[in-house]
Nucleic acid binder design. Structure first.
Lengths: 141, 141
DNA sequence: AGAGATGCTTCGAGCCTCGAAGTATGCTGC
DNA sequence: GCAGCATACTTCGAGGCTCGAAGCATCTCT
């Protein structure tokens, strides 16, 4: 219930995110991605086992019908394929295609390059990440 | 074009914002506000002269038709009124009503209280705000 | 006064989001 | 083993958000 420090930090984090999204727009359009589909692509790490849709939905803070819709878009664009999860046949995992991996790399690189955060030094970025992650780690209020 | 420091900071700022929005949801619903209308309410500071819609649209990173739509919602809910800007009769300023000021205070307080950032100390919050604002201040790339 | 610029609104299209209901598969206890 | 419940996803339909194009009122500049 304090005051201006908290307000300033929340406003700044809002502004950082909004500008990142704005600046990423053209790069997304080049690959016919929207912000929503891009974020879905982002959270599928090609260096880890393909995640079940349930996990992807959690990472995106969205619900199952919503992810189903976005997955359709990525499948239509040839960037992702659905596969049955061998460990649970109810579940579907999202597998990046070769094109999906390439587009993901390219758009993430463009997004990071243009992010306002890219103007900070590595030391400053480590401080930011440390502080923000400290805030995120506490028990779910 | 570096690497993991930047990625970690961008991901953390995304997660901070998404969690803030998630947690604010119930407080918004109590006043029949959506995330979009709440942000419009947020950027109208009752302690400053009522801002022209053009200024509000810039603060929200949205365009004129979009703000016009959101302003309609706030007017319908009795939180805001349009008034002619005396210095330019083309322009409309958005004026908070008494109800608008009260709801704005209440919902902003709830949002800040529940934000993950509320778990940091004032010193940490000052560091966060300083670093993020440093990133934001640089010339528009 | 006329021409062009600016601020807002309206309209229409498209995308995003979500609750409810349906299908398939897994799990538990009898 | 199988009945009943739980879980993962999909489909459907409604509603909200966003934006380009076009229109109106007003300002500005000459």
């Amino acid at each position: 219930m304090s005051g201006s420090e908290l307000t300033a930090a929340v406003v700044a984090s809002y502004e950082i995110w909004m500008r990142t999204v704005d600046l990423a727009g053209p790069a997304l359009a080049r690959h016919r991605l929207t912000e929503a589909t891009f974020q879905a692509l982002w959270v599928i790490d090609p260096d880890e086992p393909p995640p079940p849709m349930k996990v992807v939905a959690e990472r995106l803070h969205c619900n199952a019908p919503n992810l189903s819709f976005m997955a359709d878009q990525l499948v239509d664009r040839g960037m992702v394929e659905r596969a049955v999860d061998p460990s649970d046949r109810r579940s579907r995992v999202l597998v990046l295609t070769a094109k999906g991996r390439q587009v993901r790399d390219e758009v993430i690189r463009a997004t990071l390059e243009q992010s306002p955060l890219n103007r900070l030094t590595d030391t400053e970025l480590r401080q930011v990440a440390t502080l923000l992650n400290r805030a995120l780690q506490s028990p779910a209020s």
